[in-house]
Design a protein around this nucleic acid. Structure first.
Lengths: 221, 221
DNA sequence: TTATATTTGAAACAGCTGTTTATCATCAGG
DNA sequence: CCTGATGATAAACAGCTGTTTCAAATATAA
């Protein structure tokens, strides 16, 4: 039982329980007992529950941002100076998202955590993720901007978040949806299947016609 | 201070706090103190915290299902026997969703609650909503099926959930997104604006080309 | 080895959780 | 008036929460 073994076991157990039940609903005692680790170990190694939550995210997001930056570097080099097509950008992001947790075969956990990060109150989490990993997202959106020059900035902003919602919602609730789909359509759906289905939808959504001009609300409607 | 005034004040306060902080993070004491109501009143009138949560949803979903059924009745009558176009179906759903909470100008709360219902663990909530309000959704999807006869059943199932994710994710995280959009693009976004932007995206997503056929995973990839 | 730091362990801490109990006020119908 | 039911109130309940404390164990370095 090495020195950092305790840390790893806490993280491994915590991420699963967090993904299953949320942050507030998961107690440190639940984590430590399931991880067969002393209760005080969490506060000793991580300082607080909040820091533990952030550490769980960092273990996914650190390698993700590293790989994603590298992949974007490679992409920019390949299209030296030119514009990277939207499909390539989306494809690269999808590939990176799939790669990272594959090392611990836990894409489901990763996606569920991302969903929780957005939906749970936990203001500290959103702030932490934004300040720590916001720059990769900015770089990506800037490349998307160049790939979709006809889209007004605000429209692109909203559509990117529409698609973020699609992906996170679907993949974080994947187990429940998969059960229904399997029962109703007798079809087993893998994550790669889902990504395959997502691709044309996302592309179509991003290149949809612009909405009709806003109608200024009448004084008395 | 009438007889059911306490009940209403509990519900009004609870829905706001639940929407802001989630269910587990909102204590009964927080609700009752802010509602200026005795702590025991919750258990007296609702029985338990779980039942209070369900009551909060029922106050939105009961009028919603009633109006939505009525709207679909009217729509089916108008297209007597024929197929209702997809745009009409989406339009009707959007209108009904917007109408219901408008009476208490709290669409944001309504959407946030829906988002929580999906993302929070709270298994009892999903089961409650499914068993109590699942039939409206079934009726709607059946009409969508007739409106999109070329779409394979499984594909339509997934795309509907993609779009559900888009809407719930966007509208439930609306405040945060709106702040960013306003800061970056100096543009104030109303909910009706957002619905206007959503329309072409949803239509395009539902009518996107089918994904390329699945590639059976090679034995050794 | 001894000395020093790092990591575990069991127990206790104060505070908050949902729920229950028992007492009190209010108001209806007889 | 009295009676009985309904609702409000304060207090207590047992249980769980994150965190701290301090002693024991272990590893590291000299």
């Amino acid at each position: 039982m090495g020195q950092t073994d305790t840390v790893t076991r806490i993280l491994d157990t915590a991420e699963v329980l967090f993904a299953e039940r949320g942050f507030a609903e998961t107690s440190l005692r639940h984590i430590t007992s399931k991880a067969k680790v002393n209760l005080a170990a969490v506060n000793y190694h991580f300082g607080s529950k909040k820091s533990l939550i952030q550490a769980v995210f960092a273990r996914y997001l650190d390698p993700f941002t590293e790989r994603f930056h590298a992949a974007l570097d490679e992409l920019e080099a390949r299209y030296a100076g030119g514009v990277i097509p939207l499909e390539e950008l989306l494809e690269t992001m999808a590939r990176t998202v799939l790669e990272v947790p594959a090392e611990r075969n836990s894409l489901k956990v990763f996606m569920r955590l991302l969903g929780l990060a957005y939906s749970q109150a936990q203001g500290h989490l959103r702030r932490y993720i934004q300040s720590e990993y916001g720059s990769v997202f900015s770089r990506f959106t800037e490349l998307v901007r160049r790939a979709t020059p006809d889209l007004p900035d605000a429209e692109r902003f909203w559509r990117l978040h529409f698609m973020l919602g699609t992906v996170i919602f679907t993949l974080s609730g994947l187990d429940a949806l998969r059960d229904i789909a399997e029962k109703d359509y007798g079809e087993h759906v893998s994550v790669r299947d889902l990504v395959r289905r997502l691709r044309p939808v996302v592309v179509a959504a991003m290149s949809a016609p612009l909405p009709e001009a806003a109608i200024p609300a009448a004084e008395a409607s």
